[in-house]
Simulated scan of single mutants.
Amino acid sequence: MSDISMGAGTRNGDAVVVDNTTMAKERRARFVRGTRNRVLSMIVLLVVWQLVSMVMKSSVLPSPIDVVVQLGKNLGEGNTYYQLYITIVRVLLGMALGVTSGIIAGIIMGLSRLGEELLDVWVLSLFTVPAIVYAMLCLLWFGLNDWAAIIAVGVGVLPAIAINMWQGTKAIDRDLIHMARSFRFSRRSIVLRVVLPQLIPYILAAFRYGLGLSWKIVTVVELLGLSSGVGYTLNYWFGNFSMVQVMAWTLLFTITLLIIEYGILKPVEAYLTRWRPVSQAQGGV
């Protein structure tokens, strides 16, 4: 009996090793395939951009080469990094306010019927207000300073985050919670080992959506009333009718978001969701 058990254990161990190896190979193949497809997509975009710019005036749509050259010149100036730094700080502080509040509100709404009944009207009402309205109101309330941008981001992001977390919390597999309780898991263990892992994909999705929305709101606030930041700089070059500068700063804006996405969010997501099967991580593909 002992030998049989040991043999079974060895076979099971071999199966786990093979399965882990297969999953690692599949992840690498998926990474290579995804990188190749993204590069091809960007090449197609640049080709189309170049072709369209050849039949239009440079004052309307400059070529990608001109934009990249101008971006290179901008990156050689210290003011570029200062303006980008100011915007990033405003985004991060506003995100901290909006994401924290939104996650708490969404989880309360998802777990409590009373919480849902008390908060859903507020969250949905805030969600319908355009971002430019938040920008105007905060500039009027708090003046032409950083707090106007930070609070506008926080309030603008909160309802989107709350709605995403609300639906994610309601989608939790409650059977797993009941099973954990039957095995006498502590409340802390249930939250950390059962509830939180199921919420991580929703939290990351909410963070991505909030990040994109935050940049838009900050840009609007900077454009309307502040004297620094990427939005202010875009408005400055727009007023000087320099389309190549507008496109260069837009490209810098986009590159920054892509660096955050693929340099920070993607690795964090891969680490936090490493327990999920490859097929599930691919979304059923």
Results as ranks from 00 to 15, higher is better:
residue 241 F to M: 14
residue 231 G to Y: 08
residue 230 V to E: 04
residue 231 G to T: 07
residue 220 V to P: 06
residue 240 N to G: 01
residue 170 K to S: 07
residue 193 R to D: 09
residue 172 I to Q: 03
residue 178 H to L: 13
residue 269 E to P: 00
residue 220 V to N: 01
residue 193 R to A: 14
residue 219 T to P: 02
residue 211 L to F: 13
residue 238 F to C: 00
residue 209 Y to P: 00
residue 230 V to H: 08
residue 229 G to E: 09
residue 258 L to V: 12
residue 246 V to I: 15
residue 189 S to A: 12
residue 179 M to V: 15
residue 258 L to C: 06
residue 184 R to F: 05
residue 162 A to Q: 07
residue 241 F to Y: 15
residue 190 I to Q: 15
residue 270 A to C: 05
residue 267 P to H: 04
residue 177 I to M: 07
residue 209 Y to C: 10
residue 198 Q to Y: 11
residue 172 I to S: 07
residue 205 A to Y: 04
residue 251 L to M: 15
residue 203 I to G: 02
residue 204 L to W: 10
residue 219 T to E: 06
residue 261 E to D: 15
residue 196 L to Y: 08
residue 193 R to L: 10
residue 216 K to T: 09
residue 234 L to T: 08
residue 175 D to I: 03
residue 228 S to D: 15
residue 252 L to M: 11
residue 170 K to W: 04
residue 242 S to W: 02
residue 224 L to E: 06
residue 253 F to E: 14
residue 269 E to H: 01
residue 243 M to C: 07
residue 246 V to L: 14
residue 222 E to F: 07
residue 221 V to G: 05
residue 211 L to S: 10
residue 201 P to D: 12
residue 233 T to A: 10
residue 177 I to A: 11
residue 208 R to S: 07
residue 174 R to Y: 08
residue 164 N to M: 10
residue 194 V to H: 03
residue 237 W to T: 07
residue 193 R to N: 15
residue 179 M to D: 08
residue 261 E to R: 08
residue 243 M to D: 02
residue 237 W to K: 05
residue 228 S to Q: 11
residue 185 F to Q: 02
residue 251 L to P: 04
residue 270 A to T: 13
residue 179 M to N: 07
residue 200 I to W: 04
residue 253 F to P: 03
residue 184 R to P: 00
residue 239 G to V: 06
residue 212 G to Q: 08
residue 250 T to S: 14
residue 199 L to G: 03
residue 242 S to K: 12
residue 252 L to T: 02
residue 167 Q to D: 12
residue 199 L to T: 02
residue 210 G to Y: 06
residue 210 G to I: 11
residue 260 I to T: 05
residue 200 I to S: 06
residue 164 N to Y: 00
residue 173 D to H: 08
residue 256 T to A: 11
residue 182 S to T: 15
residue 262 Y to C: 00
residue 228 S to M: 12
residue 241 F to A: 12
residue 175 D to Y: 05
residue 260 I to A: 04
residue 225 G to M: 10
residue 160 A to D: 05
residue 175 D to V: 12
residue 233 T to S: 06
residue 200 I to K: 12
residue 229 G to R: 03
residue 255 I to S: 04
residue 198 Q to H: 10
residue 239 G to M: 10
residue 181 R to W: 01
residue 263 G to S: 06
residue 240 N to W: 11
residue 264 I to D: 04
residue 214 S to G: 09
residue 166 W to H: 11
residue 181 R to H: 14
residue 210 G to M: 05
residue 171 A to M: 09
residue 266 K to T: 13
residue 234 L to P: 10
residue 161 I to P: 13
residue 188 R to G: 07
residue 267 P to Q: 11
residue 187 R to H: 13
residue 263 G to K: 05
residue 223 L to Y: 06
